[in-house]
Amino acid sequence: MTMRSPVGKVDILPKEMGSLTTELPPAEPGTLFVMGTNGGMCVSPDAGFDVVFGRCEPDVHVCVGANDPHVSRRHGYITRERTRWVLHNVGRLAIRFPGSRLVLGGHRAELPVAYTPLFIVAPRQEHLLEVRIAARAPAPRPRDMYEVDTHNPDEWELSPTERLVLVCLGQRYLRQEPSPQPLTWAQAADELARLRPGERWSAKRAARVVTEVRKRLSTKVDGLLEEEIPPPLGNTLNHNLITELLLTATLVTTDLTLLNP
């Protein structure tokens, strides 16, 4: 997809641009990109512009959690403070960084120069707000470095069965649907039974497979055990697991082919 360059200090990102995990438009280092349900904003570091986000689309620059009344109309904003972009939570619900770090209402947090998925933690689901800050271009490397194989992220090892179940469970994320949530156990079992009719899939069996993966990863990843999450749990554990697998490229879009009959 060809992406347009920013025409000024502040520019609108169309919904069709997709996830900020993909290639960015040309931008100077420190440029802020924010993507919500229906598109986003791109702001240069010297623009003097605050990006406001929340559920009331007419009152904010980036819409998130549009259909969830638990999300504040103007839930927060991102502003430039000296040399850093800073997140301010002015809503009632906490905003979660990857893992278990929470920014509570009335608090602030500096954003890293990287891709950062932020989650507004509502009672029944979490709402994704993608943030990415453009990094400085790396210094030129010696010519022979171009021959070195690309280093992939440190992926988690999954068995074929675990991968199938997790792709089924997290397919809405892989399809980049707005505000995705994991399938229910019953939905996952129905689809697995359709794909593998001879394997007698049930909701309990699907849950056992995913629980084993969560326990295995929990020694190095926060937010995958019940005792780490305040009630009500809802889909939080599965959401955290899927997010970790996406961030490490353990699950990628091409895995959706596993769901073809």
Rank of each mutant, 00 (worst) to 15 (best):
E16A: 14
R172I: 04
K204C: 00
P123W: 08
T161W: 08
P117M: 03
G65M: 01
V10R: 13
S100G: 06
R92F: 11
L158E: 02
P58W: 04
L259G: 06
F119S: 09
V34K: 09
C168I: 03
E228P: 06
A135I: 00
T161F: 03
G223L: 01
I12V: 14
V167N: 05
L128T: 10
V213L: 01
P142G: 02
I95A: 08
V131T: 15
E16C: 00
N240L: 05
M35L: 11
E244L: 07
R196E: 14
Q171K: 15
Q171D: 15
S100V: 15
A186E: 15
D154H: 10
R92W: 09
A137R: 14
P261K: 07
P58G: 03
G76H: 11
L237Y: 08
E162T: 11
A137T: 14
L20C: 04
P69D: 07
L174M: 06
T83E: 10
P112S: 12
M1A: 12
V131H: 03
P197V: 00
W156E: 06
L24S: 03
S44Q: 15
D68Q: 07
T150G: 05
I229G: 00
K15P: 02
E130M: 11
D144I: 15
L87Q: 11
Q181A: 13
N260A: 06
V71W: 10
G91R: 07
R216V: 00
L87T: 11
W85A: 01
E147T: 14
V62Q: 09
V43D: 04
V86P: 02
G76P: 12
P160V: 05
N67I: 01
R4H: 07
G39A: 04
P261M: 01
S44A: 15
V43M: 02
K220V: 07
R108F: 14
R4G: 00
L241A: 01
N89L: 03
V51M: 02
D68T: 09
E212S: 13
R132K: 15
V221C: 08
V52I: 15
V103N: 06
A47S: 15
I95Q: 12
G99E: 12
V148S: 09
D46W: 13
R4S: 10
L225D: 02
G99D: 11
T83D: 12
R124S: 13
P140S: 06
P29V: 02
P142S: 08
K204T: 12
E28H: 01
S100C: 12
R84V: 03
L245R: 08
F97L: 14
L87W: 13
N238P: 02
F49P: 04
S72R: 13
L102G: 02
L87I: 11
T243F: 00
A249K: 14
M41L: 14
V252G: 07
R55D: 06
G18M: 10
E199R: 06
A122W: 03
H127C: 01
R84Q: 09
R55W: 09
L169Q: 09
P58L: 01
E177D: 11
N38G: 05
V34T: 13
H61W: 09
R74N: 02
E81L: 12
L158Q: 02
H61Y: 08
V221H: 07
Q176V: 07
I133H: 03
I133L: 01
L241T: 05
E177C: 01
F53Y: 15
K15H: 10
G40Y: 12
S218M: 01
D190V: 04
P29G: 02
G48Y: 07
N67L: 11
